[in-house]
Design a protein around this nucleic acid. Sequence first.
DNA 1: ATCCGACATCGACGAACGTCAATATAGAAG
DNA 2: CTTCTATATTGACGTTCGTCGATGTCGGAT
Lengths: 126, 126
Amino acid sequence: MSNQERSAPERDDRTGDCRPGLLTAPLDEAHAADLARTFKALGDPVRLRLLSLIASRAGGEVCVCELTPAFTLSQPTISHHLRLLRQAGLIDRERRGTWVYYRAQPPALDRLAAFLTATPHPTTTV
Amino acid sequence: MSNQERSAPERDDRTGDCRPGLLTAPLDEAHAADLARTFKALGDPVRLRLLSLIASRAGGEVCVCELTPAFTLSQPTISHHLRLLRQAGLIDRERRGTWVYYRAQPPALDRLAAFLTATPHPTTTV
DNA sequence: ATCCGACATCGACGAACGTCAATATAGAAG
DNA sequence: CTTCTATATTGACGTTCGTCGATGTCGGAT
């Protein structure tokens, strides 16, 4: 006795596979794991504030010596969060003398935004 | 013991506060906490696949009875992930008879995409 | 009424996470 | 060389997360 005797709802579709869509196609496991790693990096208020501090900077780069005192957290903790953001490809760093400067990585942000950008079929069932 | 004797780098800016920008302004603690909760909901491969399965559906809604068998996870686990997505405001549900249908919440996705959309100052320092 | 199936909630467990103090590394200055 | 400062790494701790099996709830059918 198949457990779907009550006429389960329909099933169809399987749209193209052109990459960016959250709403374009069902998203296979590999891409899901990759994207999840990036979104997880954004899933912490401290990292979001760090990223916004860096990305909103007109000059494009911010010294760690400016980021650390902006929080009530310890210096190793800030360093840890910066590493996670960097491993997610969201920021990049450059050492200059004694100081280290972080800068945002716009392509990565754009990729995420494009992935979330919605409604390829605004024709809501018509 | 002023720990900045070596003439630390400059500091300026403090752009407007018009809401959406990751790159517009530094993002205060309250908004950071709120956004972090949403991004955390996206920071899991299972939830990303669930969301894409729901959002990419032409009809707009998907029955749980279709989502659960798409994974090797137990039914309670899928239910748990759906709840987190719903609490993040990313999806909504509707009961119809014995079955429950989930549907994407495009405004929430658009808000996130707008937040990430980059480069208000594409003048990359040359 | 009773029974069955779809979905949600509960409790428990190991794994991953955020945080810290302590320590290490790298570069500048004396 | 040594010393000092800026940043990173390590190791440990409590908390949160993802998962499961067991159980609860709701609705339809009999």
